Amino acid sequence: MRGPSAPSFLLRSLALCGTLALVASCGPAGAEEGDGGVPGAPAGVTAASGSATSVHVMWNTTDRADGYEVYRGTTKVKEVPGSQHMVDVTRLRPSTLYVFSVRARGADGRLGPPGRRVRVKTPAAVADDRSAPTRPSAPRGRAVGSRAVQLSWSASTDDRGVVSYDIHQGGTKIHSVGAGRTATVLTGLRPGTRYAFTVRARDAAGNVSAATRTVRLTTPGTDDGRATAPTGFRATSHRADGAYHLDLSWVPPRVDGEVTEYRIQLDGRPATSLVFGGRAPRDRATYSFYVGRRAGATHRVRIRAMLPDGTWGGLSAERTVTTGP
């Protein structure tokens, strides 16, 4: 017996996506977000305190976005071009809980739906604090493929406590992470390009440390994709209601920001894509999808992730699965 036609396969994939509480783009690979040119909701929205009066908001890039609008509650507080997917919101109050969201704007000016609302509380203000944190030490870095680098450093100290670390490329601040982190992955870089990075520590009063020594890295001119590919990829099959399904599991690539979108390749061709709603899994992700009713059918399957900078990461290792006994 032959397997189902392509339309039947896609309909079953879409139905299964709904069952798994996944949202958007469970259709053929390459299907775009939104409707009629309106961008989709930005995924992977995060917010972290930068000081007692500032918050760093970050999100994944969105297809067809010409710009982004950042909201504090219902008030628009920032507007940035489509090439930017992070921003510092300043002039906030200490010890205050804030809610942020992000909307993408299309070239025609229409706004897409908001991404996930995220909550963050600014730390308490520290009176008469004029002492900056110590300089972060032992900065290190390495290229992770041709479009990303991994940076790490040793923690700073401060008499009132470090709140965040700012990462600079040359003289420009490009990212921030919370005080509990001493490593990050920067994506969206160009192959075969030399970069210079430094790290500074910041306390609740906004005092900033001296910069680390400069970490100089050159991204390779080619990329085999392994550094940004999902790892620990497994594939098995099961039978339910007379049909066969492939059960996949994998460890998401370690990048800075959330990985919410994946594309599955079946027998050398794009088969379906999926977007995790809510908070995406960071340790191990799982997904099942329909492949037909014929026992003894052998399939080759791989998976890749959409990185936070809007580019596709490398393909996972290929697994071969045969349906039925």
Rank of each mutant, 00 (worst) to 15 (best):
R110D: 00
G278R: 04
T61W: 12
A201E: 00
V199I: 10
G50Q: 15
D241I: 06
A52Y: 06
T62Y: 04
T157E: 06
S25Q: 05
G141Y: 05
G310T: 03
V102I: 01
D129T: 15
L186I: 15
V177K: 06
G34Q: 13
Y287I: 02
A210I: 09
R91T: 15
R300L: 10
R293N: 12
G40A: 04
T75A: 14
K76Y: 11
P133A: 11
A43M: 10
D247K: 05
S5Q: 13
V126N: 01
R119M: 11
I264W: 03
E79T: 12
A15K: 08
D66T: 00
P81E: 02
S152M: 07
D309E: 01
V215F: 11
L307V: 03
S146A: 15
V77Q: 12
P220W: 05
T74Q: 15
R91C: 14
V89G: 07
S131A: 14
V177E: 13
T311I: 01
D256P: 00
P42M: 04
G178C: 10
R190Q: 14
P7Q: 11
G18T: 08
S101M: 12
P94Q: 11
L111H: 08
P114L: 06
T193K: 15
R254P: 11
R293L: 00
Y98I: 09
E318T: 04
S288N: 08
G37A: 05
Y287E: 06
L217I: 15
T19I: 12
V23I: 10
T90E: 15
A148M: 01
P113F: 01
L274M: 09
V301D: 00
R12L: 13
A21R: 00
P42Q: 01
G34P: 13
L16R: 15
S209T: 06
D35T: 00
A127T: 06
S237P: 09
A138C: 12
A138I: 12
G257S: 09
A204S: 12
D129E: 13
R64P: 01
P308Y: 03
M58R: 13
A196V: 13
D35R: 00
P191Y: 11
L11G: 13
D224P: 07
P281T: 02
G277W: 08
V45C: 07
D309W: 03
S249I: 02
D241S: 12
D63Y: 03
G170R: 03
L186Q: 14
M306N: 04
T75F: 11
T96G: 13
G188I: 04
A240M: 04
A204M: 10
D224W: 03
A240S: 05
T187Y: 09
S288M: 05
R103E: 02
L10E: 14
S154Y: 10
E261Y: 02
F197I: 14
V80M: 10
A132R: 07
L315Q: 08
R226I: 07
G180A: 13
S13D: 15
P113E: 04
